[in-house]
Design a protein around this nucleic acid. Structure first.
Length: 607
RNA sequence: GGGGUGUUAGUUAAGUCGGUUAUAACGCCGGCCUGUCACGCCGGAGGCCAGGGGUUCGAGUCCCCUACACCCCGCCA
């Protein structure tokens, strides 16, 4: 008998064989996906990353091979040699290779498998905790195999796209100097410099700008970034960005580059043509209509800003509304169509939801025939004039339900944005993945450069301090910083921010004014960003760029519901790796070498 | 830092008003079976009900604490 692996090389994958291969002698390698032992004949579904092929072991052909096949169990790793035979009337239409099967003449068990902690199936109910603990088994499942293969394809397509257009793939350091502002950094103690720390790069931002200054005018990188912030469904502590920077460009040039990439990905991976150019929306408009800067445009239920109306009616007899506008808060409303037919209990549940997000409550009103409000805390006190004006402004018809939020601007926006998304999902307004026409790309543009930090009583960079203000706003830098818009842009898809970037500030004089507006002294600026400020004075070209969240792109391309489903080895919500146990303890000597001492209380071990 | 949900055989779940031996399916072990593909049939093993404390004659079930996981707010230039 010939030997597997050394002599018998794999001839086909398990997703490959068809009727056309009938009569061919083949060698397959893979895992036992399922077995059906009929005594005289053993059926095995053999699985590799390409698919599943049925293998048959018959008693009267090779008794010793049949006997060995009888020992096979789920997830055994095996090699099989045999002949491709048509299944005739026994074809399985559910299987890509269902028209044929392999009649085995040789079998080798490379490795047996203990019973797996969960069964390796496409659809699985096993708790994610258990799946993450045995991630290498979870990754054997077809949906995750497919996702990671898509991910590899995205990497490949991205490299080709940029390389073909003359971009250089250049690397940047992960271990960098800590710079304040922005995301919290992971820190790495320096053994050779006691008491000093590297930071893990939260993005290649400054280095890619320095590449521009160095003259590498078209740069890209598929790069890991690290942020020590609290995690979410769509946030991991280490994640991958498609990072891009160009010199001598406008915002529109960046948009063209990125739209080209995204359209290539959607065409090649999904076969979908995305219309260009992408829709654009001003930041202010997005906040007003959707409550955030990453609106999901796949459904309506837009917000209506009612602040001016309420102020014009001086609260309309409702003390809470008057208080809100008097305190410089805002008022927003939203219409839930009559067809939604929400019960009293369901609306109470919504109220619970918004309380969890910092809201004091959920004011509501059901519009009756004739414009009366019912089921509303405002119904008795509100003036008819304001009531009719609000109903009209929201475009509500009899039977519709009005929902209101009022008070502090940021809370109202957040609560209303989440309420809209929640209702969109609950009422089935969001088309399912793959149903077509569901890719709503959007550029959110022209946000303010600064936002006011209430605690510090100080204007601060809304994104980062190196974003270029609009030229026609420069006059307000000193007098009214809140009025300064900038060349910052976010690429949004179906409610996810898939990328963000800006045209950078390359003019040292304007840079100095921006720092001044933020109350950053020359010395402070020098201490924090000295090397970049120096570089900007050395013939820095006009430049700008963007970073796309690669994991999120793959998530959207594959219809995955969580970032953890598109990252091979993800962390839990507390940033731990359930498989390896990271982060772990280190011994006292290691800490001494690093001049590091932990102040953490020893963890009480449960006994 | 805050709010919420959950934790019962290897896995997924059921478990009534607090009541005496904690069920089922799949998987696992043994046996039978040549056309199955969610194969079938017969038999079997498998549990500190997350951990700790309390209430009670009696706790999987009620209360408190802790751990872990998940979702959200804050945070994420």
């Amino acid at each position: 008998m010939a030997r597997f692996i050394t002599e018998l090389k794999r001839t086909h994958t398990c997703g490959q064989l068809t009727k056309a291969d009938e009569g061919t002698e083949v060698v397959l390698y893979g895992w036992v996906n399922n077995r059906r032992d009929h005594g005289g004949a053993v059926f095995i579904d053999l699985r590799d990353r390409e698919g599943v092929t049925q293998v048959v072991f018959e008693e009267d052909v090779r008794p010793e091979v049949h006997d060995l096949a009888g020992q096979l169990r789920l997830e055994y790793c095996v090699g099989v040699r045999g002949k491709v035979v048509s299944r005739g009337g026994n074809a399985n239409p559910k299987l890509k290779t269902g028209e044929i099967e392999v009649h085995a003449s040789e079998l080798e068990i490379f490795n047996r498998s203990e019973p797996a902690p969960f069964q390796i199936e496409d659809k699985i109910d096993t708790a994610e905790e258990k799946r993450l603990q045995y991630r290498y088994l979870d990754l054997r499942r077809a949906p995750l195999q497919k996702t990671l293969m898509t991910r590899a394809r995205v990497n490949h397509l991205t490299r080709n796209y940029f390389t073909d257009q003359g971009f250089l793939e250049l690397e940047t350091p992960f271990m960098v100097k800590y710079t304040p502002g922005g995301a919290r950094n992971f820190l790495v103690p320096s053994r050779l410099n006691a008491g000093k720390f590297y930071a893990l790069a939260e993005s290649p931002q400054l280095f890619k700008q320095l590449y521009m200054i160095a003259g590498f005018d078209k740069y890209f990188q598929i790069v890991r970034c690290f942020r020590d912030e609290d995690l979410r469904l769509d946030r991991q502590p280490e994640f991958t960005q498609i990072d891009v920077e160009r010199s001598f460009v406008t915002q529109d040039d960046i948009f063209e580059t990125i739209e080209g990439l995204v359209c290539t990905l959607w065409k090649e991976v999904l076969g979908v043509e995305i219309p260009r150019p992408f829709q654009r929306m001003n930041f202010d408009e997005s906040m007003a209509r959707y409550g955030n800067d990453k609106p999901d445009l796949r459904f309506g239920m837009e917000h209506v800003l009612l602040t001016d109306l309420v102020r014009a009616h001086d609260g309309g007899g409702v003390p809470l509304l008057k208080e809100a506008v008097d305190a410089k808060g805002i008022v927003k409303g939203m219409v839930v169509p009559a067809s939604a037919n929400l019960s009293r209990t369901e609306v109470d549940k919504l109220e619970e939801l918004v309380r969890g997000m910092g809201s004091k409550g959920l004011a509501r009103a059901k519009v009756a025939e004739g414009g009366e409000w019912t089921q509303s805390p405002f119904a008795k006190t509100i003036t008819p004039e304001l009531r009719l004006a609000l109903t009209a402004a929201c475009g509500a018809k009899p039977g519709d339900l009005l929902l209101f939020q009022f008070g502090k601007e940021s809370v109202v926006h957040t609560v209303m944005a989440n309420l809209r998304l929640h209702l969109g999902k609950k009422l089935g307004l969001i088309p399912e993945y793959g149903s077509g026409g569901t890719w709503r790309f959007l550029w959110v543009v022209n946000p303010p450069l600064f936002e006011y930090d209430e605690e510090a009583k100080q204007w601060a960079a809304a994104h980062h301090a190196f974003t270029r203000p609009h030229d026609d706003c420069l006059q307000y830098l000193e007098s009214d910083p809140g009025k300064v818009d900038c060349y910052r842009y976010d690429c949004v898809l179906n409610g996810f921010e898939i990328g963000g970037g800006s045209i950078r500030l390359h003019d040292p004089a304007v840079q100095a004014r921006v720092f001044k507006a933020m109350g950053i002294s020359d010395e402070e600026a020098r201490a924090k960003f000295g090397f970049l400020l120096d570089a900007l004075k050395m013939g820095a070209p006009p430049h700008g760029g963007i970073a796309l969240g690669m994991d999120r792109l793959v998530m959207l391309l594959t219809g995955a519901e969580s970032l953890r489903d598109v990252v091979a080895w993800p962390k839990t919500q507390k940033g731990t790796d359930l498989m390896t146990g990271a982060p772990g303890d280190v011994d006292a000597k290691q800490l001494r070498d690093l001049s590091v001492k932990s102040t953490a209380e020893p963890v009480k071990e449960p006994r």
